[in-house]
Deep mutational scan, measured.
Amino acid sequence: TEEYEYTDEQQAREAAREWREKGYTVTIEEHNGRWRVKTG
């Protein structure tokens, strides 16, 4: 599992979409105004 943090929701969603296209399972969670994208 890798985790990436973004301050911008749009960036987080874009990144998540790219990971999904590569076949990863992706979770996005908002935490204190930051967006965490977890792949695994």
Score class of each variant (00 low, 15 high):
Lys22Asn: 05
Thr7His: 10
Glu3Tyr: 15
Trp35Ile: 01
Arg36Gln: 08
Thr25Arg: 09
Gly23Ser: 02
Thr1Tyr: 15
Glu9Asp: 03
Ala15Lys: 11
Arg20Gln: 12
Thr1Ile: 14
Thr7Ala: 14
His31Ser: 10
Gly40Ser: 15
Thr27Leu: 08
Gly33Ile: 01
Gln11Ser: 14
Arg36Phe: 15
Ala15Asn: 04
Glu14Gly: 05
Arg13Gln: 12
Tyr4Asp: 05
Thr39Lys: 14
Gln10Gly: 10
Gln11Ile: 08
Glu18Val: 13
Thr1Asp: 11
Glu29Gly: 04
Glu18Trp: 14
Arg17Asp: 08
Arg20Ala: 12
Arg17Trp: 06
Gln11His: 08
Gln10Tyr: 12
Glu3Ser: 12
Gln11Leu: 11
Glu30Leu: 13
Ile28Leu: 09
Val26Glu: 01
Arg13Pro: 00
Tyr24Phe: 12
Arg34Ala: 08
Tyr6Phe: 14
Trp35Glu: 00
Asp8Trp: 04
Glu9Trp: 10
Arg13Leu: 14
Glu3Cys: 10
Gly40Trp: 15
Ile28Trp: 03
Thr25Met: 11
Glu14Phe: 05
Glu2Thr: 14
Glu18Cys: 10
Gln11Asp: 11
Thr1Pro: 13
Arg13Ser: 06
Lys22Gln: 09
Asp8Lys: 04
Glu30Tyr: 15
Glu18Ile: 15
Ile28Lys: 01
Thr25Ala: 09
Gly40Cys: 14
Trp19Glu: 02
Ala12Ser: 02
Glu9Thr: 02
Thr39Ala: 11
Ala16Gln: 03
Ala12Trp: 01
Arg13His: 10
Gln11Thr: 13
Gly33Val: 01
Arg17Gly: 05
Tyr4Asn: 06
Glu21Ala: 10
Thr25Asn: 11
Thr1Ser: 12
His31Ile: 14
Trp19Asp: 01
Glu29Lys: 06
Thr25Glu: 11
Ala15Leu: 06
Lys38Val: 14
Trp19His: 03
Glu9His: 06
Gln10Ala: 13
Asn32Asp: 11
Arg34Asn: 07
Gly33Gln: 04
Trp35Val: 01
Arg13Phe: 10
His31Leu: 12
Tyr4Gly: 05
Lys22Phe: 04
Arg36Asn: 05
Arg13Cys: 08
Glu2Pro: 09
Val26Cys: 08
Arg13Asp: 05
Thr27Gly: 04
Glu29Ser: 11
Asn32Met: 07
Glu5Ser: 08
Val37Glu: 00
Trp19Thr: 01
Ala15Ser: 07
Gly23Leu: 02
Asp8Arg: 04
Glu30His: 12
Glu2Phe: 15
Lys38Phe: 10
His31Met: 10
Arg17Met: 09
Ala15Phe: 07
Glu5Gln: 07
Ala15Thr: 05
Val37Asp: 00
Asn32Leu: 07
Glu14Ala: 13
Glu3Asn: 08
Arg36Ala: 06
Gly33Arg: 03
Glu29Tyr: 14
Arg34Gln: 07
Glu29Pro: 00
Gln11Lys: 10
Trp35Met: 01
Glu5Gly: 05
Glu5Phe: 15
Arg20Ser: 09
Arg17Val: 06
Thr39Arg: 15
Val37Ala: 02
Thr25Leu: 11
Trp35Asn: 00
Tyr24Lys: 04
Lys22Gly: 04
Tyr24Ala: 04
Tyr24Ser: 03
Val37Pro: 00
Thr1Trp: 15
Trp35Tyr: 06
Glu30Arg: 08
Ile28Met: 06
Glu21Ser: 09
His31Pro: 00
Tyr6Asn: 01
Glu18Gln: 14
Lys38Ile: 15
Gly33Phe: 03
Gly33Cys: 05
Val26Trp: 01
Thr1Met: 13
Glu14Met: 09
Gly33His: 11
Gly33Thr: 02
Thr39Asn: 05
Gln11Met: 11
Val26Gly: 01
Trp19Cys: 04
Arg36Thr: 14
Thr39His: 10
Glu18Met: 14
Lys38Leu: 12
Thr27Val: 12
Arg20Trp: 09
Asn32Tyr: 06
Arg17Ala: 11
Glu18Gly: 09
Glu5Met: 10
Thr1Leu: 13
Glu3Trp: 15
Glu18Ser: 12
Glu29Asp: 07
Glu9Ser: 04
Glu21Gln: 09
Tyr4Phe: 13
Thr27Tyr: 10
Trp19Lys: 03
Glu2Gln: 15
Glu3His: 10
His31Trp: 11
Gly23Gln: 02
Thr7Glu: 15
Glu2His: 15
Glu5Pro: 11
Thr1His: 13
Arg13Ile: 14
Glu14Asn: 11
Gln10Trp: 13
Asp8Thr: 14
Lys22Pro: 00
Tyr6Glu: 01
Glu3Ala: 10
Ile28Ser: 01
Glu9Ile: 10
Gly40Phe: 15
Thr27Pro: 00
Val37His: 01
Arg34Val: 13
Arg36Ile: 15
Glu3Gln: 10
Gln11Tyr: 05
Tyr24Asp: 02
Glu14Gln: 12
His31Asn: 09
Ile28Arg: 01
Glu14Lys: 12
Glu5Tyr: 15
Arg36Lys: 13
Trp19Gly: 02
Lys38Ser: 09
Arg34Leu: 12
Arg13Lys: 11
Thr25Pro: 06
Gly33Leu: 03
Arg34Pro: 00
Tyr4Ala: 06
Thr1Phe: 14
Trp19Phe: 12
Thr7Leu: 13
Val26Leu: 02
Glu2Asn: 14
Val26Met: 02
Arg17His: 08
Trp19Ile: 04
Gln11Val: 09
Thr39Asp: 03
Tyr6Ala: 02
Arg20Leu: 12
Trp35Arg: 00
Ala16Leu: 06
Tyr24Gln: 04
Asn32Thr: 04
Arg36Tyr: 15
Ala15Cys: 10
Tyr6Cys: 04
Tyr24Glu: 03
His31Arg: 11
Glu21Phe: 06
Thr7Ser: 13
Lys38His: 08
Thr7Phe: 12
Gly23Tyr: 02
Gln10Lys: 12
Glu29Trp: 13
Glu2Ser: 13
Glu14Asp: 12
Val26Arg: 01
Arg34Gly: 07
Val37Trp: 02
Arg20Met: 13
Ala16Asn: 01
Gly40Pro: 05
Glu29Phe: 12
Ile28Thr: 03
Glu30Phe: 15
Gly40Asp: 13
Tyr6Thr: 03
Asp8Gln: 05
Ala12Asp: 00
Gln11Arg: 09
Thr27Ile: 12
Arg17Gln: 11
Thr1Lys: 10
Ala12Asn: 00
Thr7Arg: 08
Asn32Gln: 07
Gly40Val: 15
Trp35Cys: 01
Glu2Lys: 14
Glu14Val: 09
Thr1Val: 14
Tyr4Ser: 06
Tyr4Glu: 07
Glu21Lys: 11
Thr39Leu: 15
Ala16Pro: 00
Arg34Met: 13
Tyr24Cys: 05
Gly23Met: 02
Arg13Gly: 04
Glu18Lys: 14
His31Lys: 11
Glu30Ile: 09
Ile28Asp: 00
Glu9Pro: 06
Glu21Met: 09
Glu21Arg: 10
Glu14Leu: 09
Gly40Gln: 15
Glu30Lys: 10
Arg34Thr: 10
Asn32Arg: 05
Trp35Ser: 00
Glu30Trp: 14
Thr27Phe: 09
Trp35His: 01
Thr1Gln: 13
Tyr6Met: 03
Tyr4Pro: 04
Asn32Phe: 06
Thr25Gln: 11
Glu9Val: 08
Tyr4Lys: 07
Tyr24Leu: 07
Gly23Asn: 03
Thr7Trp: 12
Glu18Ala: 13
Ala16Met: 08
Gln10Glu: 13
Glu29Met: 09
Thr7Tyr: 12
Gly33Trp: 02
Ala12Glu: 00
Glu18Asn: 11
Gly40Asn: 14
Asp8His: 06
Trp35Leu: 01
Gly23Thr: 01
Gln10Asn: 12
Thr25Phe: 13
Asn32Glu: 10
Glu14Arg: 11
Arg13Trp: 09
Ala12Gly: 02
Tyr24Arg: 04
Val26Ile: 05
Tyr6Trp: 05
Ala12His: 00
Thr7Gln: 12
Glu5Asp: 09
Lys22Met: 09
Thr7Lys: 09
Ile28Gly: 00
Lys38Pro: 01
Tyr6Lys: 01
Glu9Lys: 05
Trp35Asp: 00
Gly40Met: 15
Thr27Asn: 06
Gly33Pro: 00
Gln10Pro: 05
Trp35Thr: 00
Asn32Ile: 03
Ala12Tyr: 01
Tyr6Ser: 02
Glu21Tyr: 05
Arg34Tyr: 11
Asp8Asn: 12
Ile28His: 01
Ala15Gly: 04
Glu9Gln: 07
Arg36Ser: 08
Tyr24Asn: 03
Val26Asp: 00
Val37Tyr: 02
Glu2Arg: 14
Glu3Gly: 09
Gln10His: 12
Gln11Gly: 07
Glu30Cys: 07
Gly40Ile: 15
Glu21Pro: 01
Lys22Ala: 08
